[in-house]
Every structure is written in C-alpha cells, then in structure tokens.
C-alpha cells in the first residue's frame, strides 16, 4: 500500500510520513501515516476529578466571591433600605433604627454585609483594571487577587470595629 501522504502535491517529501517497519507506526508492518499519538488522541481522554484535590485558584475565589457578595447585597437591599428609611424618618424612627442595629444578631448580619460591600468594591476595582488590561499576567493577577482578599477583610475589621 503506497502512502498517500509520502509526497506533498508540490513533490516535497513529507517528514510526517513513516516508512514500512517504522516502530512509531501503529501497525509497523503496514506503511502509513497514522502514528501512535494520533491514534490515542481519538480515544476519550481519562478524567481525573479528585474533588478533594481540585482547588479553585485565588483569582477564581475572588471572582466567585464577587458574585456571591453581589447576590447577597441584592437580597438584603430591602432590609438596608428599611434601616436607611428608619434612620432618616424622624427622631422616633431613628430610635427604632438604633434599637434594631443594637441587636447582636443584626450586627452580625450587617458585619457580613459590610464585608460583602467591601469585597465587591475591591474586587470590582480589580476587574475594572483587568478591563483596562492592567495586571493580566498570571503572577500579577494572583497577587492582585490576594490583595483584594486581604484588603477587604482588613477594611471590614477596621470599619466593623469602629461601628460595632
């Protein structure tokens, strides 16, 4: 069997073609173009999904937290608007606002929302910079995502303690 790809149409020898007996051929006894790697590429690739070993990289963590914090802030919008409304209604409604936010459980929720806002804020600035093609390299992207996580937690602690 002559190999169809031995010669290119311009007559140049095709180095990708193998002679009879070449061990790189799947069936070395038949002259052809199909190598081992070409044949294995068609087989379904093995899946390695060790879920306890797969780890979302840092930029991925920042990204999913951006979404989670945004969704959380959206869900708590009516509550936050209610607090804003009470705080600005009248001296009496301000007292209501005061008593609501002095509850430790409410404080805990507000602490979480403060983190959500600050994380969304910091990660958002990072994404805006990425949109401007700043910090796209792998190392810079990893570093900036670490900065986002650390700064947002630090700011949450500082402001949270100031307001507690």
């Amino acid at each position: 069997m002559p190999c169809a790809c031995r010669m290119r149409s311009n007559g140049v020898y095709n180095p990708g073609c193998f002679a009879l007996g070449d061990p790189r051929l799947i069936r070395p006894h038949i002259e052809g173009c199909k190598t081992m790697s070409e044949a294995t590429a068609r087989k379904p690739r093995p899946k390695f999904l060790a879920l306890n070993e797969i780890r979302l990289p840092l930029p991925g963590i920042v990204s999913i937290l951006h979404r989670v914090s945004g969704a959380g802030l959206f869900l708590f919008l009516p509550f936050l608007l209610f607090l804003f409304d009470r705080s600005l209604g009248s001296p009496e409604s301000f007292a209501v606002y005061k008593s609501v936010v002095s509850n430790w459980f409410i404080k805990l929720i507000l602490f979480g929302l403060l983190w959500a806002y600050l994380h969304h804020f910091c990660a958002g600035i990072r994404f805006l910079l990425l949109d401007l093609h700043k910090g796209l390299e792998l190392e810079a992207a990893r570093k900036s995502s670490r900065v986002v996580l650390v700064v947002s937690i630090a700011l949450t602690l500082i402001i949270g303690v100031m307001l507690w």
Partner: peptide
C-alpha cells in the same frame, strides 16, 4: 419591578427630609 420600587422608596426617603 422590585428595583423600580426601591428607586421610588429611595426618592421618598431622601426628599421627605
């Protein structure tokens, strides 16, 4: 609808002052 309602609420909070 929720967000449009919130916008009305925000306007009311701020312009009743």
């Amino acid at each position: 609808f929720l967000l449009i309602g919130y916008a009305g609420w925000a306007a009311q909070i701020l312009w009743r002052l």
